[in-house]
C-alpha cells in the first residue's frame, strides 16, 4: 500500500517551497534530483539528518553534502488510523528508517501495507512526485 492523498487538499510542504529554511535547502534540492543528501561535518565527518546549523559533536559550522546510498532498515513506525491532516487518507503509516550511513529519516512506504511492516525490514529509497511542485523520498521493501 502506498499513502493516498485527498486531491483537493494541499500536502504539508517543506518550508522551502513557502519560506526558506536555509539549513535544509540542499536536502530538498537533492530530493528534487532524486537523491537523499546527508549533511556531513567537514571537521569531524559526522553525518546529520535532519540538517542543522552546527555539528553537535565538534561545534563546527563548516559542512558539505554527500549522497546517501538510499538503503536502510525500518527503525520504528506509526500507523495513523485517523488522519491528523486532511491531505492524508487513513489508514497510512509513517516510518522511521535508519539509513545504512547511520542517520534516520521519517518517510512513508510504497507498496507495503501497514500490517506487513516490521522493525528491521530492509528498505530502499524511491522518489514519488506527490504534487506538481512536491517530490518526496519514500521507501519500498529492498530486493
Amino acid at each position: 500500500m502506498t499513502v493516498e492523498y485527498n486531491p483537493d487538499q494541499k500536502i504539508p510542504h517543506p518550508a522551502m517551497w513557502g519560506v526558506l529554511y536555509k539549513s535544509s535547502t540542499p536536502f530538498w534540492e537533492g530530493v528534487k534530483n532524486k537523491k537523499i543528501m546527508l549533511q556531513k561535518c567537514k571537521s569531524c565527518g559526522n553525518l546529520l539528518n535532519p540538517p542543522r546549523p552546527m555539528c553537535p559533536k565538534c561545534q563546527s559550522q563548516e559542512n558539505e553534502w554527500i549522497t546517501a546510498k538510499g538503503t536502510g532498515k525500518i527503525y520504528s513506525w506509526v500507523t495513523f488510523n485517523e488522519a491528523p491532516h486532511p491531505a492524508f487518507k487513513a489508514p497510512y503509516a509513517a516510518v522511521l528508517v535508519e539509513l545504512d550511513e547511520g542517520p534516520r529519516i521519517v518517510s512513508n512506504m510504497v507498496d507495503v501495507k501497514p500490517e506487513d511492516l516490521e522493525i528491521g525490514m530492509a528498505v530502499e529509497v524511491t522518489f514519488e512526485d506527490v504534487a506538481e511542485d512536491l517530490t518526496l523520498p519514500k521507501f519500498r521493501k529492498a530486493g
Binding site: Y21, S76, F80, P84
Partner: peptide, 28 residues
Amino acid sequence: MIRYDFFSPFGLIGQPGYVAMMYRRYMH
C-alpha cells in the same frame, strides 16, 4: 522547522503520532 519540513510531508503530524513512533520502538 524540522517537524514541519521533515515529518509533516509524510503525515507524521501531531503529538500522539510523535510519541507512537517512540512507543513502537519501546515495545520492540
